[in-house]
């Protein structure tokens, strides 16, 4: 059967997708434009970062190497800008999928029909995947073209690998937002809790190198798996792909279980 709800959910985002394209391409262009000047002072920047307190550096800068072109893309674009934007999108869409429609009162349009609740969740999840894939393609294409202007060489397959890792990271958090929304029916709680989990797991991963007990649990953090194997250089780490696939599927199944029999506030 044709996934009408999935298609409809993506259709309603048409306008916002245009802004996402403009925004993402614009930001990539900006990063490319400042690259030459960053490269000139790469030495100084690296030294500056070296001098920062270790805790601060771990938490807010991460592994960065401004001297190498790949390091620049990896740290500036893929560790700072893109995860923030992609998580913003994924958590927004995930929390709107069920809870948003429930709060707006439009859920009855979908449910007063012969369509199963589990299918509504599945198609909404499909729309989340579709939206994230779309943004991922924009990023890959944007960077693939963008780096040509500044003479950075990154193989297309590595660009795809690191973007896929980003996609999986965002999908996990988006699905968590879907789960919390399906369970509570509250978009606010879904956004708030998911964001809290994201911040917490981000710091678990970031501070792991300098805090002993965090090092032990570092691997529960999706952010660890996001950069595991340094995909922009070495390609994807399949254990991490498996990790993302597992948590996303578990969240999805729990979403269906939570939503299937719940009293709806519509």
């Amino acid at each position: 059967m044709w996934p009408k709800i999935l298609i409809q959910s993506l259709k309603t985002q048409r306008k916002s997708f245009i802004f996402w394209i403009v925004g993402l391409v614009g930001l990539i262009a900006l990063y490319m434009a400042i690259y030459p000047s960053v490269q000139e002072s790469a030495q100084a920047l690296n030294e500056y970062i070296e001098k920062m307190p270790e805790a601060f550096r771990a938490a807010f800068i991460g592994e960065s190497d401004y001297a190498s072109p790949v390091g620049y893309i990896s740290s500036e674009v893929y560790t700072q800008m893109l995860p923030l934007l992609f998580l913003f999108y994924a958590i927004g869409v995930g929390s709107s999928a069920i809870a948003g429609e429930e709060e707006k009162g439009t859920l009855d349009i979908l449910l007063a029909t012969p369509i199963r609740r589990s299918r509504v969740v599945l198609e909404k999840w499909g729309a989340l995947i579709g939206g994230l894939l779309f943004l991922s393609v924009v990023v890959v294409l944007g960077l693939f073209v963008g780096i040509k202007f500044v003479d950075i060489t990154i193989a297309l397959d590595k660009l795809i690998a690191v973007t896929l890792s980003l996609f999986l990271l965002s999908l996990s958090f988006g699905t968590l937002a879907l789960l919390i929304g399906s369970f509570t029916g509250s978009k606010g709680i879904a956004i708030g809790l998911t964001t809290a989990v994201a911040v917490l797991t981000f710091f678990i991963n970031a501070l792991a190198p300098i805090v002993d007990f965090l090092e032990k649990i570092q691997k529960i953090s999706p952010f660890y798996h996001y950069t595991a194997n340094n995909p922009i250089v070495n390609g994807l780490d399949w254990v991490s792909v498996f990790f993302f696939a597992c948590i996303s599927l578990v969240f999805l199944i729990l979403s269906i279980v939570a939503f299937r029999k719940r009293d709806l506030m519509i």
Binding site: K104, G105, T106, D108, I109
Partner: peptide, 9 residues
């Protein structure tokens, strides 16, 4: 079904 409160896209 017509809901008591109409909400639409």
């Amino acid at each position: 079904y017509i809901p008591g409160e109409i909400h639409m896209y």
